[in-house]
Amino acid sequence: MTAETMSIFSPKVSARFDALVEKYPVRRSALVPMLLYAQDEIGYLSDAVIAEVARRIGITELDVRNVATYYSMLRFKPAGKYNVQVCTNISCMLRGAYDVFEKFQDELRVGHKGVTPDGVFSLEEVECIGACCWAPAIQVNYDFHDDLTPDSVPGILAQYRQKSEGQKNA
């Protein structure tokens, strides 16, 4: 197999990337979204992801790493299947975000950037996610949950746990 035909991504994502690099006046503009979509599929930016993205864009792996390490949503270690991101920035903090964050820590028994042993959840304290008027708010992967109290935490976790179970059984 040649390097050109080998891809670590699914055919669907692969095809999407093929289109993405052609979308802009300059190929490299695809880099940041491509890294994010790659992470969505693989879970994190592994060495293999970096290598393939570099090849697809036509830049060095060092160049890809220089860019990738700049953006806080991109990670280089696996997270849980559902990454719980609790905003504790000012608007959320004023409305009890730390209580919510604590509740998540208690429930999941992991701290900031921790991953549950079953790999289903990871927890992260994050900066403002743009939901200040509906604070406190969190994101689970890309889903927003707002107007939270510590009491809403178990329900949210149950919802995703169920989803995870459902997928496992299917």
Partner: peptide
């Protein structure tokens, strides 16, 4: 890129 805390 709305990111200023307090802004949504």
């Amino acid at each position: 890129d709305e990111s200023e805390p307090g802004t949504c």
